[in-house]
Design a protein around this nucleic acid. Sequence first.
DNA 1: GTCTATATCATGATAGAC
DNA 2: GTCTATCATGATATAGAC
Lengths: 233, 233
Amino acid sequence: MSIESQATRDRILDAAERLFGLNGFPCASLRQITDEAGVNLAAVNYHFGSKEDLYKAVLIRRIRPVNEERLTRLGQAEQLAGDQPVPLRAILDTFIRPLLRRAANELPGGMPFLRLISRDLTDPQPFMLDEMVREFDPLVARYTRVLTQTLPGIPLSELFWRMQFTIGGMLYAAAHQHDFERTSCGLCRENDLDGCLRRLIDFCAAGLQAPLTKAAMQPAASTLQQNALLHYQ
Amino acid sequence: MSIESQATRDRILDAAERLFGLNGFPCASLRQITDEAGVNLAAVNYHFGSKEDLYKAVLIRRIRPVNEERLTRLGQAEQLAGDQPVPLRAILDTFIRPLLRRAANELPGGMPFLRLISRDLTDPQPFMLDEMVREFDPLVARYTRVLTQTLPGIPLSELFWRMQFTIGGMLYAAAHQHDFERTSCGLCRENDLDGCLRRLIDFCAAGLQAPLTKAAMQPAASTLQQNALLHYQ
DNA sequence: GTCTATATCATGATAGAC
DNA sequence: GTCTATCATGATATAGAC
């Protein structure tokens, strides 16, 4: 592959990352993308084959390094902990920090990538599902193991739910924190990614190790329809 | 408006709710919607004016009752608490339960509505932003007041962040719990909405009242680039 | 109010010259 | 490899008959 060819590919990938993140896969047209990249419309099909394959290439280019960094950091944390369980906040740090570093522009990606990955995880494009499972499978296995060691009192199924809350909170807050100054009526001025990381770890660490309520261990009949306020008094 | 006319409107709204939730606003075509509703393609423009106005009507029809129920329940909780602050778990219950009741088909809406609202809150359609702010403004004011009374030790700006994590976790988990049996490799079999509500309240209550770390009160310089694992030992 | 038919437009993909 | 030109498709919206 020639140097010019690679440069064209990269310009397309960058523009696609921004526009897929901004407008979503269906609304970002190849014309927008090639215009912004300064290349011809036909270049996408020449270099990537189709719009869907371009989307895959955009996502994989960023996700793979993020997940590799997560596993590296997790390995370091395990080494540092020795025979002890890895501290919960350290585990969360290895999981969240690699993503937010990209969003903070320490590494390539930035907010466009964060918006894009947040979008695809909360609302996946069907043709990406298998690829995403492939990318995330090793993570699930490793984090499950280390979390059960750190939180032996929490059943595995509860841990899974709580990790979903963690992921949801992380994606939602990180991708939308730019709007927080507006939506909080000026309350959140210090809305940098450092602050986001620290607050996420505070919040999720507490949530992950929260004591189980009685209902958690012995599920009761449906309570959704009754007014349960008295229960909390 | 005649009875037949109202029936046509409702059939369109129901089909649109399902297909907007399933495929998203841009990918759900008016042809799909009118076919599923069993009405003519032109009926949408006759009754609603445009695709965007149909989308607004679909969302408002469900959101308004949810938010009204939230405020009613919150009022009941305040009355029950008397002079005392409302218990945190009761506050969370009034906020989350009205949404999950719809998802559980106790009231009209069901999972299509939950997928739709989750979609639009995490990835808003630009033309809906103003409408959504109008619908949620009263909620923000009321919940802010009652939360500061219950958690006087947590600064308002921190509370705002933590409510964002709560909302993100709630939307992500509630909208995707149907996939959890698959994504957890069969671990999460009891994935009903009752369980979701209970687990969310466990997790978010702990996160909302988590003690503030030192960094929270006195923000430090950027730590995103340093390896912070030692910090957690 | 409801339908058919159609106007108008934007999209993804491709063929073929250079 | 890169361009222009074009095709086939599917979209929203509307005009006008009944």
